[in-house]
């Protein structure tokens, strides 16, 4: 197997290329231009870049106004400053009128050591309850490259849980994110795993080791969290021996686990559902690997859960697992600040 490709500042370069023939696309910033990788866009298309300073509420309503006049505002800031700071503005200035504003929320969950003020742990829960809202989440470099087309195909507002800095490529470059379609990563009959965001890499590591122990999985990577109606995925929810595991870098209240639970109950799937995610608690300022272990959302946590479900002990150690991709150190050229 060839070594994993790690890409740096992907969105920054990609957005400039992608927007070259899209004069209606404007990029909006709230004083986090380098931090959200829109500095190259600003330099390439200064007339299409609007700086608002630290004033997200105005930026959101202003974006609604721009969209009403036929523009496509691409709002970029940390996720918490989108859905926590400006919720009323999103609801009334953007979501109610079903306007095509694309909101790029950075630093999901454990991806920042910036502490509780910067860690978006309930963004999906909040945003999915808004009528008209579409929700996408990126899990790798290919997702980050191709989420722009997926988001732009939606006639309405889109919230995107975005990654930045150094990002591994888990999915082949030739297979873009498709709106409304889960990625099938393994096919098997014992357990169905739905994973999202950075948890997909962890799930892939665990699945690879567990397969060697004779357990088979249907593993799906979920990038469209709302709407949630991919038929192939819905079939996978019932076609398994032990049940379904969801795995997410988000609180289990209102995120992927909840979404799957609602769907399973509605369809009448009586299989067990096991939710791996942040268990109704705030995070704190620490490194990603440390937090994933502490909050039990890493590969080892998934292995322990599978052991419980199957009533087995596999004796898989950290050394047996394929290494996770190199995680960017606190100070790196791949990002603008230590966050």
């Amino acid at each position: 197997m060839r070594p994993m490709e790690i890409l740096s500042k992907l969105h920054a370069k990609n957005l400039v290329q992608w927007a070259i023939d899209k004069p209606d696309v404007l990029v909006l910033s709230a004083d986090l231009t380098s931090s959200t990788e829109i500095d190259l866009f600003r330099d390439a298309y200064p007339d299409r870049f609007i700086s608002f300073g630290v004033a997200e509420q105005n930026m959101m309503s202003f974006a609604g106004g721009l969209a009403r006049e036929g523009f496509f505002p691409f709002v970029h800031t940390f996720a918490v400053f989108i859905y926590r700071r400006a919720y009323d503005q999103i609801a009334m200035s953007i979501s109610y009128p079903n306007l095509p504003v694309r909101m790029f929320g950075f630093l999901p969950g454990v991806t920042t050591p910036g502490g509780a003020t910067h860690q978006a742990i309930e963004d999906i829960s909040i945003m999915r309850s808004l009528p008209n809202m579409t929700i996408l989440e990126c899990g790798d470099a290919t997702d980050v490259e191709t989420v722009l087309d997926a988001a732009h195909s939606v006639n309405g507002p889109v919230y995107i849980r975005m990654l930045r800095g150094e990002i591994p490529r888990l999915f082949d470059k030739s297979e873009p994110m498709i709106f409304g379609k889960a990625r099938l990563l393994s096919r098997g009959s014992d357990i169905t795993i739905l994973s999202s965001g950075i948890c997909t890499e962890e799930a892939m590591r665990a699945v690879e080791a567990l397969k060697k122990k004779g357990i088979s999985f249907t593993h799906l990577h979920i990038s469209t969290l709302k709407p949630f109606d991919d038929n192939a995925m819905l079939e996978a929810l019932s076609a398994n021996k032990y049940g379904v595991i969801t795995m997410e870098n988000h609180t289990i209240i209102g995120g992927l686990g909840t979404i799957a639970a609602e769907k399973m109950a509605e369809i009448g799937i009586s299989n067990k559902l096991f939710r791996i995610g942040i268990k109704d608690a705030y995070l704190h300022g620490a490194g990603r690997e440390y937090l994933m272990k502490e909050y039990e959302i890493d590969a080892s946590a998934l292995i322990r859960r599978v052991e419980d479900i199957t009533d087995s002990r596999f004796n898989i150690t950290e050394d047996d697992l394929k290494k996770a991709h190199h995680i960017t150190p606190m100070h790196s050229d791949a990002k603008a600040e230590a966050l």
Partner: peptide, 19 residues
């Protein structure tokens, strides 16, 4: 526009005027 939640009308109108 939706302006019943006070304070949002001006920002929306400003966005329209900028556009």
């Amino acid at each position: 526009i939706m302006s019943g939640s006070l304070g949002q009308g001006l920002s929306q109108a400003a966005g329209i005027a900028y556009a």
